[in-house]
């Protein structure tokens, strides 16, 4: 059906939901009973982060994730809209790579937030 996408939640037994492509996944999944964490609801904090393992998401409004978190597949559901059908891991069980001790494991210049990251050295 045009205008909808199928979202599969890998860590909820592969449950699948049909959602509107133009609305944030936090809203469309919660409306169908998926229990999701959230905080700021504008893409500025990472409370609602989930991990995208297949598909494409438009999250151009997010300002909180750094390039390493983005490379690891994290999406902020409060501003994420599905471009294609997607597979997600949700909740804090998906946050294994989201948090790191910044002193033990610092970011390289290209891994910073997109607004301040430098291009990766060849």
């Amino acid at each position: 059906m045009s205008g909808t996408r199928t979202i599969t939640i890998a860590n909820r037994g592969g449950a699948a939901y049909s959602v509107a492509e133009r609305r944030p996944l936090l809203d469309t999944l919660r409306e169908q009973g998926v229990d999701l964490p959230y905080g700021c609801r504008y893409g500025g904090c990472i409370t609602c982060a989930a991990r995208l393992t297949a598909g494409t998401i438009d999250q151009r409004r997010q300002v909180a994730l750094n390039n390493r978190q983005l490379a690891n597949g994290y999406v902020l559901l409060c501003v994420a809209r599905p471009v294609t059908d997607c597979v997600l891991e949700i909740g804090v069980e998906s946050h294994g790579l989201l948090y790191r001790n910044p002193f033990l494991d610092p970011l390289a210049p290209h891994e910073l937030k997109p607004a301040i990251a430098r291009p990766k050295e060849p």
């Binding site: 700021c40 904090c45 750094n66 910044p102 610092p106 970011l107 910073l112 937030k113 301040i116």
Partner: peptide, 18 residues
């Protein structure tokens, strides 16, 4: 800024005057 501290702390962002 909230957009800086809410996601977590990064030492590099201190250097970028965040």
């Amino acid at each position: 800024a909230p957009n800086t501290f809410m996601p977590g702390f990064d030492l590099e962002e201190v250097g970028y005057l965040k």
